[in-house]
């Protein structure tokens, strides 16, 4: 007779798998990837390839030879890390530094803690922040997008940096906006025709990916929307108080990788809270810290630091933000 399999219930499994979730994140990043290839050309393509390949290779080598475990690169998570890291780099970034950044991201950001699921900080951000602190000049020299052929020809500062620099020189927002090197318009940033790291520039492409992630139930709305709302309310209040010193919220939302960070980096499963309540606290924290750094700090950009800081708060948030027990009596 046929041998029957015995196991406890449930006997069926849903459609989710780590692989599928990671694949969906990669798919969601594709529109922004295409936009960056279009605006930054070959430079973007090589940076992305080098980052992805080195992340995968480093993960494989570390698991195989240092940890002596079965490599799990086929779960695609290293590809996601590589993509996100590349998205955070300028398209003319030296390739050897891309490799170093990938090693830090995978090695220090992920593997020292025991691999996927055990890292307290977003690996790609660990890599990015390492590079930002170690090589600030290369990290903040952005090629301006023109088109495929002439890309990489000119470089310039990001809109956030221009504003920061202008305010430091005692100019008002309107004065800065009328300067010659300020070519930024909101319409440009929707499509991605602005200076910046290679994946952060196109709001539309990134939001398209966000919609895809929501439809595929990869992430929930809680973290990104809370960040957007907090940023809008906080920077909006500042703007209303003094429009000469503080730029409007739309600017904050469209620049400095706000959408990339809120949708793809803050929502990293491993380093974000486990409950919806916790996600709202976490998102609010990221929004507040980002705007605080951008407006009062010395760095023009604060999202990466804000996310890393809130990553560190996640265990605490998880401890206090537990879901309400069904029928709980207080």
């Amino acid at each position: 007779m046929n041998k029957l399999i015995i196991s406890p219930s449930p006997h069926i499994h849903g459609e989710f798998s780590t692989k599928r979730l990671m694949r969906d994140v990669i798919i969601a990043l594709l529109p922004a990837l295409c936009v960056s290839f279009y605006f930054f050309g070959l430079g973007a393509m090589t940076v992305v390839c080098v980052a992805v390949i080195s992340c995968v290779v480093f993960e494989y080598l570390i698991q195989k030879f240092l940890l002596k475990t079965t490599p799990t690169v086929n779960d695609y998570s290293a590809i996601v890390t590589g993509l996100i890291l590349a998205f955070n780099l300028p398209s003319n970034f030296p390739l050897w530094l891309v490799v170093v950044g990938s090693l830090i991201a995978i090695g220090v950001g992920k593997m020292v803690f025991g691999g996927l699921g055990n890292n307290p900080f977003n690996p790609a951000l660990v890599g990015r922040v390492f590079l930002l602190i170690a090589r600030p000049v290369e990290m903040t020299t952005w090629p301006l997008p023109i088109n495929m052929i002439t890309a990489d020809a000119t470089t310039g500062a990001t809109p956030l940096a221009i504003i920061k620099e202008g305010l430091k020189n005692g100019l008002t927002i309107d004065q800065i906006k009328s300067q010659a090197d300020y070519t930024f318009t909101y319409l440009d940033s929707l499509w991605g025709q602005i200076g910046g790291s290679l994946g952060e520039v196109s709001a539309i492409a990134l939001l398209l990916g966000f919609a895809y992630l929501l439809v595929r139930k990869v992430i929930t709305w809680h973290i990104p929307i809370t960040i957007f709302l907090t940023v809008t309310v906080f920077s909006g209040t500042l703007h209303l108080v003094n429009p000469n010193q503080f730029i409007d919220p739309v600017f904050h939302l469209l620049t400095g990788g706000m959408i990339l960070g809120a949708v793809y980096m803050a929502t990293d499963y491993v380093t974000s809270p486990m409950t919806h309540k916790g996600m709202i606290v976490y998102g609010t924290g990221i929004g507040l810290i980002t705007i605080a750094i951008r407006t009062f700090g010395s760095y023009p950009e604060g999202l990466s630091f804000a996310i890393l800081f809130m990553n560190a708060m996640v265990p605490l948030i998880n401890k206090y933000m537990k879901p309400k027990l069904f029928g709980e009596i207080k």
Binding site: I5, S7, H13, T18, T72, D75, S77, L116, G117, Y269
Partner: peptide, 15 residues
Amino acid sequence: ESKRGTKSNCIRCSK
């Protein structure tokens, strides 16, 4: 359909 998938690390997706 009877076989369970191989288990891997918890990715803390909170699903």
